[in-house]
Design a protein around this nucleic acid. Structure first.
Lengths: 276, 276
DNA sequence: GCGACTCATTGGCCTTACAATTATTCTACT
DNA sequence: AGTAGAATAATTGTAAGGCCAATGAGTCGC
């Protein structure tokens, strides 16, 4: 290529940003301190691909063209393209496999990704385990109230199936714990607010991450606690079945405060959240 | 270097992962489908630096050594190192400047970063604007109740200062909007739950991003609405001053539902959230 | 002092080359 | 015919080296 590097850069920038009317376009973005930041080639490529993805041009599982083709398409070197890949991998938007028929494939980001970035933020800001639970105690009960109004018979059946599964695994600590967590998430999802379901999912995820790092032992009275849990879950579903939102909310708030107190008493109220 | 590439890779892996006892260590991680994934050099470097950062060996503003030194330290090529930089940049953990005395500097991630990853997730899952507001209507009022119990006189003073500022800028749409948003955030922060403050901050951020993309026009009755807003804010602070948590919660819930209805009527209830 | 200039430092980007991995295809042997 | 295993082709992972651009600090001239 005989162009000077500057010309090439200019060309790429031009090619990538040919939709300057889009107000949301994040080229030449400003940093908090007001200084302008010249976007790097890799960032522009990542942004272009990300846009295709979010706007639906690319679906999960779709394969991106091999590096050689993308290099030609974006007029960049392999190094820059690969840096863009690392960015998109970090955002869990692609996965790259090597070998024949390898290459980058679109993946849907999951809760893990988001909760990781939030986790770092919370840890830096000194959030405590107590706050994490308080947040859930505030968010979940009102959702249960809503759920009592919108639940279908199939929802009830699913919830009861899950409770039966809990009861069947009452002695297997890890299985029971993940089932109980899933019960929470299921309730929240059924309430129908995708946003809050996601938030609760992330809080769960953070709590579990913390747990896995610091707790390996079991409680002596675990079995008894688990039985209580199952009983409360059954009671809750019955009230939801009766469409008694207010009672359901009260029950759930009480139940969550109970388990919050048990867990915090064991782990320590002011334990700083630690996910790394 | 006369080693085969395989030997070099092995050496690097060994050097980077010399703390295998750390349970949190994410080398050779498993993907959801159970397949094991060989971590790339860039990921290992990013992880090593990230760990130093989160554990406090590196503070915000600290400069990392120049690329040449890091290449030597990690025994990797410049390409791999730079891919690692892109990963860390994506996570908002470093910022790279060029020129003399440039290089990578540690930065603290901010709400933007987290809300971006959540935004993608929400958009993909088809969250609507309505849900975003419903989430805030659920989360904020209980926090106001708490705030009424813990508020200090200085908190009241700050809130009233902010309201005065709102009143003074009642005709400047953008200034008023950001002041009103800050009022929300201030309330939530004062309630003392870092986790929920962060979550509300992210929801705000997402709403504002959406707004900036799609709304440029003003309402004809904006001035009147803003005056109502100021009146309600004053009323709220008075009730908080009286430590009347229940009333404060009720007032705030009502106020938020009002503004939710106004905004949704204008933008459309089922508008899918669009942040890109 | 103070502005323009120089220059060393450092990252941004490109090219080339080779190694490692993997799906497919071919081959040889049973 | 069928199948294990070897060759092959496609594709990413990593390295090395080079040029250019940006930047900030010191220097020189006024």
């Amino acid at each position: 290529m005989s162009d000077s590097a500057a010309a090439v850069v200019a060309k790429v920038r031009g090619a990538l940003l040919k939709t300057p009317a889009k107000v949301g376009g994040a080229s030449a973005s400003r940093r908090p301190d007001g200084a302008i930041r010249v976007p790097k080639a890799a960032e522009l490529i990542a942004e272009a691909i990300r846009r295709r993805l979010v706007q639906g041009d690319l679906k999960a599982g779709d394969a991106l063209p091999p590096e050689v083709e993308l290099m030609a398409e974006f007029h960049v070197s392999r190094a820059s393209l690969r840096e863009a890949f690392r960015i998109l991998e970090t955002e869990s938007l692609i996965e790259v496999k090597r070998g024949a028929h390898g290459g980058a494939r679109i993946t849907l980001p999951d809760v893990d990704t988001a909760s990781k970035s939030i986790g770092v933020l919370l840890q830096i800001r000194g959030a405590t385990l107590k706050e994490l639970f308080d947040a859930r105690v505030i968010i979940e009960p009102p959702l249960i109230n809503i759920l009592a109004g919108v639940r279908t018979d199939q929802d009830l059946a699913e919830l009861r199936d899950l409770i039966d599964f809990e009861a069947a695994n009452i002695d297997d600590w890890t299985v029971f714990a993940s089932a109980a967590t899933e019960f929470h998430n299921l309730l929240v999802r059924m309430a129908g607010n995708v946003t809050l379901a996601l938030i609760v999912g992330m809080l769960d995820e953070l709590y579990l991450r913390h747990l896995k790092r610091f707790v390996s032992r079991n409680r002596p009275d675990q079995r008894e606690l688990n039985q209580q849990t199952v009983a409360i879950h059954r009671q809750l579903v019955d009230v939801i079945a009766a469409r008694d939102g207010a009672s359901a909310e009260t029950i759930w708030r009480y139940a969550m405060q109970q388990s919050r107190n048990v867990i915090l008493a064991e782990l320590g109220e002011d334990t700083p959240l630690a996910v790394y």
